[in-house]
Amino acid sequence: MTAQILYAFFTVLLGVGGCFGYFYGSNWLLDRTFPANANNDASAVRNLRIQANIRPWLFLGPALLLLSVYLIFPVIQTVYLSFHDRAGDKYVGLANYKWAFYDDQFRLSIFNNILWLAVVPALCTLMGLIIAVLTDRLWWGNLAKSLIFMPLAISFVGASVIWKFVYDYRGEGQQQIGILNAIVTYFGGDPQVWIALPFWNNFFLMAILVWIQTGFATVILAAALRGIPEDTLEAATIDGAGPFKIFFRIMVPQIYGTILVVWTTITVLVLKIFDIVLTMTNSQWDTSVLANLMFDWMFRGGGDFGRGAAIAIVIMVAVLPIMIWNIRQANAEQKGH
């Protein structure tokens, strides 16, 4: 065991040290090669200029390299494959996209994705905002926020186990071990197979993501609320505004930027949503979403890379407008200061 720990320790040290080593080493080398403290002022100035031209790429280099290998290369590959047949060697033009357009499963997935998009970001942000406002004035508010945040630390596998204890179904007459059915039967209703109810089961899956992501929204919005100058609230109170008016007319406009950031972040996450559907229903009972459909075509029975790739491209193109909007927003902010 000790040997293993030592081995792991050195491996970690090597990895992290290598990374530090690159940055220190390359910058040291640059400073050595083009010394800026040279006595000759003219050459020092020239060296400084050379340094200024090279250094940004030393800083950016590793990031650009890794991004190219791990994201850009696969994206290009996928674009290429989306125009080819299942084995990836015959050009088929837009056939995969055409197929997707007429495929029932694809349409269903798009519909479900839109449903997720309409519900989850809004609900998370709203809940986050409400909780942030409510806990802001409680002495145990931080504890409360930590509890709300906790689901974020739980793996998707863990979360799906947790929620199976909520949605579990046992035949009529048997004792229910899922709390939702237990409550329903307690009030005299019939137990339901919640995650197999077409259409509505989407919402039961969404509840899980809302449960996970609300903590994220809460923590960020709470911090933004903290940043609102107290005197604007006091002024509003003196002007006779009630708590709701203060909330909607004074607080929300001041943290509008943060609200949008939270909403966008969760939207991007939702468009890529995959794990929850995989672990809870495995796309059965009409719960399929795009990422899962893609996964099925790429890795499962489908085995048609072209179609999987086409779906992946659709996902990326769908998120793009949100990203463009986000960049605009970021640029506007950049100009602001």
Binding site: L67, Y70, L71, I72, F73, P74, V75, Q77, T78, V268, L271, K272, F274, A291, M294, F295, M298, F299, F305, G308, A309, A312, I315, M316, V319, L320, M323, N326, I327, A330
Partner: peptide, 14 residues
């Protein structure tokens, strides 16, 4: 920022 949208599962096989 655009690369934020790439679904992870997509890049595994390449």
């Amino acid at each position: 920022v655009g690369l934020l949208v790439v679904p992870l599962q997509m890049s595994l096989i390449p």
